[in-house]
Design a binder for these strands. Structure first.
Length: 332
DNA sequence: AAGTTGCCCAACCGCCCATAC
DNA sequence: TGTATGGGCGGTTGGGCAACT
């Protein structure tokens, strides 16, 4: 048996929003906000609309800083790369494109970008650009986590982004805001100047992380993510782990995070690191457990492979073809 | 000029999940 | 602990419009 509808469909107005309705909603939001209850909002605001409809209208069109119009080439690449990585997780993809909404991106992908890819008007090389990989969705894999949660961190666990030869080192002390530093490992084919200087700390505090489904995101920009940018209510279990560190030995957070990395992170779960540097202010990385399974960057998908994904993906819960999936254990 | 087709995108639908009770 | 409720999100729909015949 399905659940009861959220409102009486017969009594609410449907279809396109009028300027008057927009104005009412805007005015109400400016004065009161949602009040934490979208269902009750229409009545309070004098709108004959379903609460969900109000929410959608606000989040997708009326809230400040919404960006409409043409997508840039950079945005195209971000969307393609992330789609190849995580599939149709539009809210997550939207979180990486300031001002864009998941609905916007979803529509853009379905109507234009998919075709662009198939027609070959997106340069496949762009999808492989190292700076793109590092900038938007670097895959990191942990290389030196302690073998058990009870083992103190004898050395800093490191997360290596294999595609661009960067080594991200997890700061050892979690009593301070968690941070990562970067250092180029070798002569890279691209410059770091626009991104990170060696040893530059780039990720913000542990207090600023988010969990969504099997993804853990550090940083990010709530104000422009997804439909509403709200991940906070889904972060509780990680936060708890983090906060349950041993305060007595001043390792608060360290044990918690260790526990989380070893226990809290389910198999196949990913960590996503995000910070506000360069370009759109987003630098991401992914890592996951089991450790070490990701030997290569999933961004290294060729145009042909992405095309194949498009043509074969009737279900969105897989990301890669069978062989790739098994090889990389990229389920989530 | 009229009819048809295809595209775009705003809005809706329905399921899932978290939380309150 | 079970149930009800609200929020979030991906998939789908359908109206409006432009392009085409």
């Amino acid at each position: 048996m399905g659940r009861a509808p959220c409102c009486d469909k017969a009594k609410v107005k449907r279809g396109p929003w009028s300027p008057e309705e927009d104005a009412k909603l805007k005015e109400y939001m400016a004065k009161h906000g949602t009040g934490g209850n979208w269902i009750a909002l229409p009545q309070k605001a004098g709108l004959k609309r379903c609460g969900k409809s109000c929410r959608l209208r606000w989040l997708n069109y009326l809230r400040p800083n919404i960006k409409h119009g043409e997508f840039s080439d950079d945005e195209d690449r971000i969307i393609c790369s992330l789609y190849a990585n995580i599939g149709s997780r539009w809210s997550i993809i939207a979180a990486q494109l300031p001002g864009r909404t998941d609905n916007d991106i979803k529509n853009y992908w379905n109507t234009k970008l998919k075709k662009k890819l198939i027609m070959g008007s997106i340069n496949p090389d762009a999808l492989r650009k190292p700076q793109q990989a590092a900038h938007f969705s670097s895959l990191l894999h942990a290389t030196s986590l302690p073998s058990s949660p009870s083992t103190p961190l004898s050395s800093s666990p490191s997360f290596t982004c294999s595609s661009n030869s960067y080594n991200y080192t997890l700061a050892r002390s979690f009593t301070e805001p968690i941070s990562f530093s970067s250092s180029p490992l070798s002569n890279n084919s691209f410059t770091t100047a626009s991104m990170l200087q060696p040893q530059e700390t780039f990720v913000g505090s542990m207090q600023n992380y988010q969990v969504k489904d099997n993804l853990i995101m550090f940083g990010g920009e709530a104000s422009c993510s997804s439909s509403d940018g709200s991940w906070s209510n889904q972060m509780s279990h990680v936060k708890e782990e983090y906060e349950h560190g041993d305060g007595a030995n001043n390792n608060t957070g360290q044990v918690g995070l260790q526990n989380y990395l070893h226990n809290g992170v389910e198999d196949g779960q990913k960590l996503m690191f995000s910070s506000g540097v360069a370009g759109h202010g987003v630098l991401n990385g992914w890592t996951g457990k089991p450790i070490g399974l990701w030997g290569e960057n999933p961004l290294d998908y060729s145009l042909e492979e992405i095309k194949q994904l498009i043509s074969t993906s009737s279900c969105n819960n897989f990301l890669f073809d069978e062989n790739k999936t098994a090889e990389k254990a990229m389920y989530y």
